[in-house]
């Protein structure tokens, strides 16, 4: 008697989107990054199409980071004081496919950069490096409503991914992203209902669901990782069953969450492996974009992704 395999048939598919615009698309990026498009649960290659790999973005800041532990800062050295040199290092030396730039310097407590300065910074960065960009605000809502539109305009037609829109502050960002041809990150606090609701609100403003990436708000390994893990699994199951309002790729801020844990400060290997396992566990639950910090962790996770996809 033959054992019949149990195969799931899915009606839905995760939306696919491209970050970065090259010359043909009216931008100036040397490469572009495609994510999403899965017709299967993560890593179950025999059950449906998984056209794109999870992609790692290096996180850089527009200002020297203050609270990064030594094992992390020593991996970059002096370039942390010069965002452009930092970006160069990520692209040229560490072979970053895309960068995630955090506009921390615009935060009222960290430099209070004005919208003009923020826009100039993005323009200069786009000239300096040719990889696609993810642009993240400073975390101060009212300030971000001023600088992100300026950044968006400065990067017009470069098809960046910009965030984060939240349930009670999304309109300004959606309008900018629409006007300048970018994609948006919709952030929800480990809550599948809010994720769905926010996607609907954004698409009601005319930005199509295919241009949204969900930030499910993750916790690091040992710090609530399992909450995001399960929210992502639930959202994927709903999306594959046909719910288009949850069929967005996921972005996970792995580095940010890992490097504030106690373990990340408990020795080089402990910190690096903490970022690695946080990243790979979220790949298992559906992460499409991983924003990471430590080059050694990135290297290992990239190798793991290769081993999963080069079968």
């Amino acid at each position: 008697m033959e054992t019949q395999l149990v195969l799931e048939k899915w009606a839905g598919v995760i939306s696919a989107l491209t970050i970065g615009a090259n010359k043909e698309d009216g931008g100036s990026r040397a490469n572009i990054v495609r994510i999403g498009g899965q017709g299967s649960l993560p890593l179950l290659f025999k059950e449906g199409s998984i056209p794109n790999r999870p992609v790692i973005a290096f996180e850089i800041w527009d200002t020297p980071p203050q609270d990064w532990p030594d094992d992390l800062t020593s991996a970059y050295g002096k370039v942390l004081n010069d965002p452009f040199a930092w970006a160069d290092k990520c692209v040229n030396e560490l072979k970053a496919q895309l960068l995630c730039v955090r506009m921390q310097g615009a935060h009222p407590d960290f430099g209070n950069k004005d919208p003009g300065e923020a826009a100039n910074f993005i323009s200069a960065l786009l000239t300096r490096v040719k990889v696609p960009l993810i642009i993240i605000g400073s975390g101060d809502d009212s300030k971000d409503n001023l600088i992100l539109p300026a950044c968006s305009e400065a990067a017009k037609n470069e098809r960046c991914l910009i965030g984060c829109a939240v349930q009670d502050n999304y309109k300004t960002l959606v309008a900018s992203v629409l006007a300048d041809g970018h994609h948006i990150i919709a952030e929800s606090p480990i809550d599948i209902n809010i994720a769905k609701q926010l996607n609907i609100l954004i698409s009601d403003m005319g930005l199509s669901l295919e241009r949204i990436v969900i930030n499910p708000t993750i916790g690091a390994l040992g710090y609530g990782l399992e909450y995001a893990y399960s929210i992502m699994e639930r959202a994927r199951l709903a999306a594959l069953s046909g719910d288009k309002t949850l069929a967005s790729p996921f972005i996970c801020f792995v580095g940010q969450e890992t490097w504030r844990t106690k373990e990340a400060k408990a020795g080089y290997e402990q910190g690096v492996i903490w970022e690695i396992i946080t990243a790979t566990s979220l790949i298992q639950s559906g992460a499409d974009l991983l924003v990471m910090r430590h080059p050694a962790a990135v290297e290992k996770v990239a190798g793991y992704i290769d081993s999963l996809f080069n079968k």
Binding site: L221, G222, L225, E226, Y229, E263, G267, E269, Q270, I273
Partner: peptide
């Protein structure tokens, strides 16, 4: 057998097997 490696694996196990 490195404790930093084993701790990361056991912590992941603790997370996955926590009652949701």
């Amino acid at each position: 057998l490195e404790s930093w490696e084993v701790l990361s694996i056991l912590t992941l196990r603790q997370n996955i097997y926590t009652d949701p």
